[in-house]
Simulated assay, not measured.
Amino acid sequence: MLQGLNHLTLATGDLDRSFAFYVDLLGCRPRVRWARGAYLTLGDLWLCLSCDPPRPARDYSHVAFGIPPEQFSALCARLRAAGVVEWKTNSSEGDSFYLKDPDGHQLEIHAGDLESRLASLREVPYEGLTWFD
């Protein structure tokens, strides 16, 4: 039986640039690095950077990272000062900052969790919403 997310792998065309982005800007912890990749951690997340031609999503698919609400504004200011590309404006519950990594992968920094999202849906449900618990 599946237990949850094991790891996330993102293709990168420039390992040095992506390594610096994820470690220096986003705060991932480097674990190992080799000629064509690196393993990083962020909380319980195991992130792999792999040297392959990146093909970022062109739809709403993205990776969302959590942040404590009291740290949200400072990180967003630091990311904007670093010149990251923003790809969307937040329109849902909780503070969110949508940015692209150096290879164009769509990311989100979100100050909230599933419980806060579910609470907001109790107040303002999505069209066609069905509850299972």
Rank of each mutant, 00 (worst) to 15 (best):
A11T: 12
A11N: 14
A11Q: 07
A11D: 12
G13N: 12
G13C: 07
G13Q: 05
D14P: 05
L15P: 05
D16K: 03
R17E: 10
S18E: 09
F19A: 10
F19Q: 14
A20S: 15
A20H: 00
F21D: 01
F21Y: 06
F21Q: 00
Y22H: 03
Y22N: 01
V23A: 10
V23H: 12
D24Y: 06
L25Q: 03
L26S: 04
L26V: 00
G27H: 05
C28K: 03
C28N: 01
C28Y: 09
R29W: 07
R29E: 15
R31G: 08
R31N: 08
V32H: 10
R33T: 00
W34K: 01
W34Q: 04
R36P: 00
R36L: 07
R36A: 10
G37K: 05
G37I: 03
A38S: 13
Y39Q: 12
L40A: 00
T41E: 10
L42H: 04
L42V: 09
G43W: 04
D44P: 12
D44E: 13
L45F: 00
W46V: 14
W46Y: 15
L47T: 01
L47K: 02
L47N: 02
C48M: 07
C48P: 08
L49Q: 11
L49W: 13
L49F: 13
S50E: 14
S50L: 09
C51M: 13
C51T: 12
C51H: 10
C51W: 14
D52M: 13
P53L: 11
P53Q: 09
P53V: 13
P54R: 03
P54Y: 05
P54A: 13
R55D: 09
R55P: 01
P56R: 15
A57I: 06
D59G: 08
Y60D: 15
Y60V: 14
Y60L: 11
S61Y: 09
H62L: 05
V63A: 10
A64R: 00
A64G: 11
A64F: 01
A64T: 08
F65Y: 14
G66V: 05
G66A: 05
G66Q: 08
I67Q: 03
I67P: 09
I67H: 11
I67W: 02
I67F: 05
P68H: 07
P69I: 14
P69W: 09
P69C: 12
Q71F: 14
Q71C: 11
F72L: 05
F72H: 10
F72Y: 10
S73C: 07
S73P: 11
A74L: 11
L75I: 13
L75V: 13
L75P: 12
C76L: 09
C76Q: 15
L79H: 02
L79F: 02
L79T: 03
R80P: 06
R80H: 13
A81W: 01
A81D: 11
A81I: 00
A81C: 04
G83A: 00
G83R: 00
E86Y: 01
E86K: 02
K88H: 04
K88N: 06
K88W: 04
K88C: 08
K88F: 07
K88E: 01
N90C: 00
N90I: 04
S91K: 08
S91G: 14
S91A: 13
S91N: 12
S92W: 15
S92N: 14
S92L: 13
